[in-house]
Amino acid sequence: VPQRAWTVEQLRSEQLPKKDIIKFLQEHGSDSFLAEHKLLGNIKNVAKTANKDHLVTAYNHLFETKRFK
């Protein structure tokens, strides 16, 4: 089981690129989880459509539901 890579403050910070969060989610989330949160596909394309709040919610949801690969 992966550990949380970032704190809530870090997740919301401008310093953390959306692409980093997407990469983490794609590496650790199950396909059904990723599909549900519309996070499947090319990281660049996902970054265009997903806002930061959406990614933070998905990140927290992944750990709450433990839907890891």
Rank of each mutant, 00 (worst) to 15 (best):
V1I: 12
P2Y: 03
P2L: 04
Q3L: 08
R4L: 06
R4V: 05
A5N: 15
T7I: 04
T7P: 13
V8G: 06
E9Y: 02
Q10K: 03
Q10N: 04
L11G: 01
R12E: 14
R12K: 13
R12D: 07
R12G: 06
S13R: 02
S13I: 02
S13P: 02
E14K: 12
E14R: 08
E14W: 06
Q15H: 09
Q15I: 06
L16Q: 03
L16F: 11
L16Y: 04
L16K: 02
K18S: 15
K18V: 13
K18F: 06
K19F: 08
K19T: 14
D20H: 07
D20S: 09
I21W: 01
K23N: 09
F24V: 04
F24A: 06
F24R: 01
L25I: 07
Q26G: 02
Q26I: 06
E27C: 10
E27Q: 11
E27K: 09
E27V: 08
E27T: 09
H28C: 08
H28F: 14
H28K: 08
H28V: 12
G29D: 00
G29I: 01
S30K: 05
S30D: 10
S30N: 11
D31S: 11
D31R: 14
D31P: 10
S32M: 09
F33L: 05
F33M: 02
L34Q: 04
L34V: 04
A35V: 09
A35W: 14
A35M: 10
E36I: 10
E36W: 12
E36S: 07
E36Y: 11
H37W: 10
K38H: 13
L39G: 00
L40M: 11
L40A: 12
L40I: 13
G41V: 02
G41C: 06
N42L: 13
I43S: 07
I43K: 06
I43E: 08
I43A: 09
N45I: 15
V46C: 06
A47H: 08
A47E: 15
K48W: 07
T49S: 09
T49N: 07
T49K: 07
A50H: 07
A50K: 08
A50G: 05
N51F: 06
N51I: 08
N51H: 08
K52D: 03
D53R: 05
D53T: 07
L55W: 03
L55R: 00
L55I: 07
V56H: 02
V56E: 07
T57V: 13
T57K: 12
T57D: 14
A58R: 01
A58L: 04
A58I: 15
A58V: 05
Y59N: 01
Y59M: 03
Y59Q: 01
N60W: 05
N60E: 15
H61T: 13
H61V: 10
H61W: 06
H61K: 08
H61Y: 08
L62Y: 02
L62G: 00
L62S: 00
L62N: 00
L62W: 02
F63A: 02
F63S: 02
E64A: 08
T65I: 04
K66E: 11
K66Q: 13
K66M: 10
R67K: 12
R67M: 11
R67W: 06
F68V: 04
K69G: 08
K69F: 05
K69N: 07
